[in-house]
Write a protein that binds this DNA or RNA. Structure first.
Lengths: 198, 198
DNA sequence: GTTTAATATGATACTAAGTTTCATATTTTG
DNA sequence: CAAAATATGAAACTTAGTATCATATTAAAC
């Protein structure tokens, strides 16, 4: 038994490092030359991997910017919300809590990424698609909490509205980078809870 | 002066016919062989145009299914809604009125198209992206009606919620093709107006 | 009606994303 | 250390989408 086998497995750690490296170099190149002008080949070179390996880590060029796994965090946080809260407020808290423990560094990266994503049509489309996919998760969570069925239109409308508000906030945030994303999201979801007064 | 020059211009009519022909043949091929398995080249052959010409009519393969111009109809209908209605109800009426004058034939085509689009990830993403683009239109209309600013978060949240509900209904409809789309949309928007009771 | 200007089409060559296949290297396990 | 499992690299391929230029068709002017 050698020193290297700590617990996570060398393979896993190496993969995680490679993945992070690809994302880092990709982001730098995108910043410098623009998203479209940067080819996957260039990213591969910068990250010192082969072209084919890139697609083993990310199935599309877009994914290199969009992959994040905070679904499990969201689920955990949502399920631990007090029972007296409405589904919407529980969801609001869960979404906020996920982002509340970010360092200023991480927040700044997120802001930059958001601006980039929202300004490139292809990326924006992919991001929105991701968020709509998350609708399914919201439906699932809401059903568990309320005892309603997946096919209940009220649940669907709820999940749709929350997701739509989320998208609109991301857009707003891209246009107003100086704003506080969390505050915006909280305010917007509160407006939804209040029946969208106009 | 020959018989042919009626009023719309020969060129315009020819273009419209070609466009319709491309869409028709594309839809048939997609039905038969699937979206991905059908190449633009095959569509071009079927519609008896060149490969390059296809992209003069539709800038992407997706667009051949997604292009529709009922934005102007929506705007007109919205602006003619009675002033005492809330923005949401005015929007609801406008969206419904657009679809209410469809023939059963058209409704059936729409249903089929919706099923196809929602079942192919790429198409679904493109469609959702279209709908989110329409959010800008809703923002614009809502501002005109309420006198609020584009940058008002309440307006943004409103537009986002309506769009999100719309998306969720399309998804629901794809899963339940036997349902009445208009009834679903109306019901879902009513729930939104009622504050999304759960 | 013929000429001229504007626009639509077709052919061709090109770039880059994404897929497939297979050989090679590296880690893990026994 | 040997064998099984998995990660990587190389190369050839398909197809969406772009750019360019010559040709054909329609519209407009005279």
């Amino acid at each position: 038994m050698s020193v290297k086998s700590t617990q996570a497995g060398l393979r896993e750690r190496k993969k995680a490092k490679t993945m992070a490296s690809i994302q880092l170099h990709a982001l730098q190149l995108f910043r410098q030359y623009g998203y479209k002008a940067t080819t996957v080949e260039q990213i591969a070179e910068a990250a010192e991997i082969s072209y084919s390996t890139f697609f083993r880590y990310f199935s599309t060029k877009e994914d290199v910017l969009l992959i994040d796994n905070y679904d499990p965090l969201l689920v955990a946080s949502f399920e631990s919300q007090p029972a007296h809260l409405t589904p919407l407020m529980a969801l609001r808290n869960a979404m906020l809590s996920g982002a509340k423990e970010m360092t200023p560094q991480e927040l700044s990266t997120m802001r930059e990424r958001n601006e980039l994503v929202m300004s490139v049509p292809e990326l924006r489309a992919a991001m929105i698609n991701n968020m709509v996919s998350m609708m399914d998760l919201i439906i699932e969570l809401t059903c568990r909490r309320t005892g309603r069925e997946r096919d209940d239109l009220a649940v669907r409308a709820f999940a749709g509205a929350v997701t739509g508000v989320n998208i609109s906030v991301m857009q707003y945030y891209a246009e107003h980078p100086e704003a506080d994303f969390l505050a915006l999201l909280e305010e917007a979801l509160n407006k939804l809870e209040a029946g969208l007064p106009l």
